[in-house]
Amino acid sequence: MAPSEKVIIIGAGVSGLVLAQILRQGGIPYEIYDRDDGTNWQGWAISLDRCLQSLYPLLPSDIQDPAQASPNYGSGKADGFWIVNGVTHDFLGVTENAPRGHPDSMIHANRDHFRKIFMQNIQIQFGKTFEKYEEGKDGVIEVFFTDGTSTKGTILVGADGSSSKVRQQLLNGFKASPSKYTSILGSVTVNEELCAKLLGQSNSGLLVADRDQKANCLVMDHNPDGTSLFCWVLAYKVAEYEKEQAWARTATPEALFEKAKERTAHWPEFMRDTVSKTGPEGMYRPFRLLETVLEKDELPKGRITLLGDAMHSMLPFRGMGANTGISGACLLGKSLLDGLKQGTSVDDILRVYEREWIPKSREVVLESRAAGAGDENHDLSGGRIENGGP
């Protein structure tokens, strides 16, 4: 790749940042843009395991270990979750809890901490909202932003989330499909006694479910005073789901709080206590759960491709969203590093990446959908109970 050529990444979420670090490590010129200012909330936590063996060998040596994004990093405790039946309150199992360095280890990462690690030594151009791109006959892609500026490159990667504007142009207006689930979410600081109950037989928190609703309650930080910050997300579905989602988007914090208490009234006491202690002041604006299922195994010919939720947004019921996004970034990054070194054409590199990753990621999206639809609470582990470490 000539010095004047570069990869343009739209979106500085988890997948876009990982790709940027891999390209930086490999000496491939890139630019990364994001519409936000770098401080906007992008969610609480991500759980990483399936992607780690691909990720670590590709990272630059001048950034922190991603494991430092875990609330348990300082204590050396292994990350993992326990699973509870919301109806019977039965304990169903523990995911992994393998020690760090073990092939089956997990990183339960505070998303904000994780992004800050992957922002190190990268110049992100914030406040740049993608408007459109144009492909020239010479293979150069010009990207235009809503502020009237533009940039040129040889490859365009749309890593701009489940509502990707790059994808909409590339696939003639394609949009992600809304799920039937409504989300309610909150955060709360708890004392040591309640923290111990929430952690149970794990170090990171719990997953709990019954028919038509699922939730997680995860530790985000352990504070010096002995308290701990937890986040929880409840996703539920009702027959008139469009009406329910419209209600949630405009409901007051007080109304969301009352709904959460109502939906969890039959759950274990420590979960009811956690929701109650959250109060209206701890409630967040619900987010829309979207699914992206690409039907074809290749994108249109050219030097534009997709990454992360732009390719495969999914329901958060198996802990596979970030895993899949980062694995895709590793595959795309390594394909570019190896392919360009060998003189393979950009078009061929991108098509090979897509033919491998679109069907794989589509399968994960559908498995996450099935976990949401099923009554088997073990599905929430994504197979980790059966395949976990010691």
Rank of each mutant, 00 (worst) to 15 (best):
D338P: 04
V346F: 08
G372V: 02
V364F: 10
L366N: 05
D348F: 04
G374W: 00
E356V: 09
R369M: 06
N377E: 12
G382Q: 02
K334C: 03
V352N: 13
A373G: 11
R369F: 02
L350C: 01
Y353E: 08
R351Q: 15
Q342S: 01
L336D: 03
L336Q: 05
W357G: 00
A371Q: 11
R362P: 08
A373F: 11
G333N: 08
G374H: 03
W357T: 07
L337T: 13
V352F: 08
A371N: 09
K360L: 06
R369I: 04
E367A: 09
K341M: 00
G383H: 02
P359E: 12
K360M: 06
S345Q: 10
D338M: 05
S368A: 13
V365W: 07
V364C: 09
V346R: 08
A373Y: 12
D375V: 06
E376W: 08
N377C: 05
E376H: 10
G339Q: 02
L340K: 12
P359C: 09
D375Q: 07
E354R: 06
V364Y: 10
I349T: 06
S368V: 05
L350F: 04
E376M: 09
S361D: 04
D379Q: 13
T344E: 13
L366D: 02
L337Y: 05
A370Y: 03
P359K: 11
E376G: 11
K341L: 00
L366P: 01
G343R: 12
E376A: 15
I358Y: 05
D338I: 13
R362N: 08
A370C: 01
K341I: 00
A370K: 11
L340G: 14
S381G: 03
S368K: 11
G339E: 03
E367M: 05
L350A: 07
E363L: 14
A370P: 01
L350M: 06
E386P: 06
P359R: 13
S381A: 09
I349Q: 03
S335I: 00
Q342P: 00
D375M: 11
D347I: 06
E363V: 13
G343L: 05
E376K: 15
S335K: 07
S381P: 03
E363D: 15
I385Y: 05
D338S: 06
G343W: 12
L340E: 12
T344P: 07
D375W: 02
G383N: 03
H378K: 14
K360W: 00
R369N: 08
A371D: 10
R355C: 10
R351N: 07
G383Q: 04
E386S: 13
A373M: 15
E363G: 13
E367N: 02
E354A: 03
D375I: 07
G382S: 05
G372T: 09
